[in-house]
Computed example of a mutant assay.
Amino acid sequence: MRAYDLADPYPSVSTDDDAVATARLFVERRLPALLVVDADQRPYAVVPGSQLLRVALPDFALEEPALAVSLREADIESLPEKLRGLTVAQWIPRHGAVPAVVGPDAGAAEIAVLMARTHTPLVAVVEADGERTRTVGAITAARLMDYFLTQG
């Protein structure tokens, strides 16, 4: 099966969107990851939910996981306060990573390999139209797993 056939509409956010509103969208829609696009609707980043939590955690706990045992809820910064005034681009941990994307003709096995290799629960499907590339949808790990379960 081709990526275009597996892809579903998926909410995306812009790099310029408000971080607090984006966090609320993430929670309300129970998304596995954020799909962030640039001003031209090209994928900018795919950020798993686990990585979105990093902003609320103290640096020392991230640098030395053994210290996480001593953390109390009071040590975790208020997420709305931490995100207030930030854009999505300022919030997300991009680290120069290229987002997980495939073209519309990519096969299911190729997509599964990309997800496993990049540790992402979401792959964006992009389509090139001359000079312009646009995001046409996304494939979640759950959607792909469903496909593989029903193929036997």
Results as ranks from 00 to 15, higher is better:
Leu52Gly: 09
Arg94Asn: 02
Asp5Ala: 11
Gly85Cys: 08
Ala39Phe: 12
Thr120Val: 15
Ile111Pro: 03
Arg134Met: 14
Pro32Val: 12
Gln151His: 13
Leu57Cys: 05
Pro93Asp: 13
Met115Asn: 01
Ala141Cys: 02
Ile92Gln: 08
Ala124Tyr: 02
Ser12Ala: 15
Ser70Ala: 14
Pro58Leu: 05
Met145Glu: 12
Pro80Leu: 13
Leu35Asp: 03
Thr133Met: 14
Gly152Phe: 11
Glu127Trp: 06
Leu71Phe: 06
Val102Ser: 10
Thr150Leu: 13
Phe60Tyr: 14
Ala74Val: 08
Ala7Lys: 08
Arg84His: 12
Gly130Cys: 03
Leu114Pro: 03
Pro93Ile: 15
Ala97His: 09
Ala74Cys: 07
Arg94Gly: 00
Ala23Val: 01
Glu131Gln: 04
Pro80Phe: 14
Val55Tyr: 12
Glu127Pro: 04
Val101Ile: 11
Leu62Cys: 02
Thr22Ala: 02
Leu53Ser: 08
Ala68Glu: 08
Phe26Thr: 07
Ala3Asn: 08
Val55Ala: 15
Phe60Asn: 11
Val36Pro: 00
Arg29Asp: 04
Pro65Val: 10
Pro58Arg: 09
Val113Gly: 04
Gln151Pro: 05
Trp91Pro: 00
Val13Gly: 01
Arg72Tyr: 12
Arg132Tyr: 10
Gly49Pro: 02
Ala108Asp: 14
Glu81Asn: 08
Gln151Lys: 13
Asp105His: 15
Asp18Leu: 06
Thr120Met: 11
Ala19Gly: 04
Ile92Glu: 08
Ala74Tyr: 11
Gln151Ile: 15
Glu131Val: 00
Arg42Met: 09
Arg72Asp: 12
Gly96Leu: 00
Leu114Lys: 11
Pro43Ile: 09
Pro48Arg: 13
His95Val: 02
Val47Ile: 02
Gly152Met: 10
Trp91His: 04
Met145Gly: 05
Val126Ile: 10
Val13Arg: 03
Val101Met: 06
Pro80Thr: 15
Val20Tyr: 02
Arg132Phe: 06
Val46Pro: 00
Ala39Thr: 10
Ala3Arg: 09
Ala128Lys: 14
Ala66Gly: 10
Val47Asn: 01
Ala142Ile: 13
Val136Asp: 09
Arg72Lys: 14
Thr22Leu: 06
Ala19Trp: 00
Ile76Cys: 05
Ile76Tyr: 05
Pro93Met: 08
Phe26Cys: 06
Glu63Trp: 09
Asp146Lys: 12
Val126Tyr: 04
Leu144Asp: 01
Ile76Trp: 05
Leu34Phe: 01
